[in-house]
Design a protein around this nucleic acid. Structure first.
Lengths: 257, 257
DNA sequence: AGTGATTCTTTATGCCGTAAAGTATCGACC
DNA sequence: GGTCGATACTTTACGGCATAAAGAATCACT
C-alpha cells in the first residue's frame, strides 16, 4: 500500500511532526510509551517487514496492544508521516563545497541512495504532498544549499532539484524492490531471474529478434562485482552512469549563461 | 499497497502475459468471462479508485463474485502484472527520428507522462523485477531504438535509459499522487496546501530563516497556468525543466567521444 | 443416462485498521 | 482521605480484504 501522507487533522499532524505538543501533565496513570518510542519501534518493524507492517506488530514490539498506540498517534497514516520524517534525521544537513557543487551533489545523492537502502519503505510514502516535517525540509535544504551558489535562477533550480530527487528515488526503488521481492519469496535474485527468463525464452524463443534494440542494450557489460547480486549490480551501474549524465546536464546549465 | 510483481508460479504468469495458453476446449459450462475482460475491468476500476481496488470490485463490475476471477487468474498479484502490461499497449512502439533523437526522446517522455496521468496506479507496480510482458518490452524497446543510433556504448545507454525512465516516473508520481490524495480526501490541492502551510507557519513562524535556501528556491516562479492546480503546475514546470537538463547531459555524452 | 471436467457461488478463515466500551491508575479538590 | 474526573491501556467488535474449501450448476462425452 502506498500511503498517502498528510491526511487527517492538519494541526494535529504538524504539531506531532514538529514536536510542538505542550506537555502539560494533568492526572491519570503515567504514560508508559511516547511518540518517539512508537515511531522508533515502527521504523524498526518497517525496516524488517516492509511498509506492510501492522499496528498490531508495532504494539507487540512495545509490549502493548495495537490500540494502545492510538493514545499517542491519531492513526496509521500519521504514524507513517512521523516515521518518514524521523528516519530522515539520520541524513546530513549540509555538505562541504570545497570540491565544488558536483562533488557535493554526488555525495548527497549517494547518501540518499544508501538511506533508501536502509529504509526501503520510505520509497513508498507519497512524495506529492510533502509531509512537511523538519527533517524532510532539512534534506532538501541541504541539496538546495549546494545548488543555489551556482547562481542559477530558482526556476531552473527547481527542475534540477526535482530531477536529482526523482532520479535517486527511482534508482533506489529498483534495488530496494528487488531486495524486498527476493525477501518476500525467499528467492535470491539470480534464481528468480533465471526461472523467469528460462520460461520466457521457452515460450518466446525469438525474443532477441522481436526486441533487437533491447538486445543491443545488453552488450558491453561491465565486469560484475561478484559480491553483489545480479540485479543490484545492474542498479548500481545505472545509478552511477545516470547520475553522471544528469550532472553533465547541470554543468552545461551552470556554464552557459 | 505496492504490489511486488512477478510472484507465484513463473510459468503460469508468463504464459498469461504472452497469451500462450492453449485453448483446448473440453467440457463444462461455457466460460462467461475471459482474462482480457477481467484485465480490462480491473484497469477500469483501478483508473477510478486507484491501486487499492479489490477483487470484489472487479468481480462486481463483471456481474460476478470475486472468486469467479480465480478461475482465470491465479491471484491479485498476477492480475496486477497483466493490468500493468496490458495498459502499456496503448503506448507507441516506435518514434520517428527525422528531428533527431532529442525530439524523439522528448516525445517518448511526454507520452509516458501522459500515460501515467491516465493510469496512475501503474506507478505503484514495482519496477525492480520487470513484469517481463510484451508491451513493457515494447515501450523500452521504443526508447532504446531512439538512443542506440546515437552510437553510445551499451553501458552508457543503460544508465541513460534508466535515468530517463526514473525521471519520468518520479515526475509523474508527483502529480499522480497529488491528484489521488486530493481525490481521497475530497480536498482540492490548494485547500490542502493552504490549511497545512497556515498551521505550519503558525507553529514555526521563522521557517524561512531556518531553511533559507529552500526559501530562495521558491523565487522566480513562472506565471501559473490558471487552468491547473498549484501543485500540478509546479510538477509540469519541473518535468519540462528537469527533462531539458537531463537531455543536455545526454547531448554532452553523444557529442564528446 | 451417466460421468467427469469446468464455471461460478457460498461459506469460512485469518488478516487488517480502528470504533466503542470497559478497567485500572493517577492528580486534584473537598 | 475519600471522591471525582482525566488519562493509559485492554477487550471486544465491526467491516473489509485476499483467498482456501466445498458445493451447485452446466456442458461434452461415452
Amino acid at each position: 500500500m502506498v500511503v498517502y501522507a498528510g491526511q487527517g487533522d492538519p494541526r494535529r499532524s504538524i504539531e506531532l511532526l514538529w514536536r510542538a505538543s505542550v506537555a502539560e501533565k494533568r492526572s491519570g496513570p503515567k504514560p508508559g510509551l511516547s511518540v518517539d518510542a512508537i515511531v522508533d519501534a515502527a521504523i524498526a518493524v518497517a525496516d524488517e517487514h516492509g511498509m506492510a507492517f501492522s499496528m498490531r506488530a508495532v504494539g507487540e514490539r512495545l509490549g502493548r496492544t495495537a490500540m494502545a498506540l492510538y493514545t499517542y498517534v491519531p492513526g496509521k497514516n500519521e504514524l507513517v508521516d512521523l516515521m518518514y520524517d524521523r528516519s530522515m534525521a539520520e541524513l546530513p544537513t549540509s555538505y562541504e563545497l570545497d570540491d565544488g557543487w558536483r562533488a557535493a551533489v554526488t555525495r548527497w545523492a549517494t547518501d540518499m541512495w544508501e538511506f533508501y537502502g536502509r529504509h526501503p519503505w520510505v520509497l513508498q510514502v507519497s512524495q506529492a504532498r510533502p509531509v512537511l516535517g523538519p527533517h524532510e525540509f532539512a534534506v532538501i535544504e541541504a541539496l538546495a544549499a549546494i545548488l543555489v551558489p551556482t547562481g542559477l535562477p530558482g526556476r531552473e533550480l527547481r527542475g534540477i532539484v526535482g530531477a536529482v530527487n526523482y532520479f535517486v528515488r527511482g534508482a533506489a526503488q529498483t534495488v530496494a524492490e528487488a531486495r524486498a521481492a527476493g525477501g518476500a519469496t525467499g528467492e535470491a535474485d539470480e534464481e528468480w531471474w533465471y526461472a523467469r527468463s528460462a520460461v520466457l525464452l521457452e515460450i518466446e524463443p525469438d525474443l532477441a529478434k522481436k526486441f533487437p534494440m533491447l538486445h543491443l542494450l545488453e552488450n558491453d557489460r561491465e565486469p560484475i562485482d561478484p559480491e553483489l547480486p545480479y540485479l543490484e549490480n545492474d542498479a548500481v551501474e545505472n545509478f552511477r552512469g545516470g547520475l553522471k549524465v544528469l550532472l553533465d546536464g547541470v554543468e552545461g546549465a551552470v556554464a552557459k549563461p
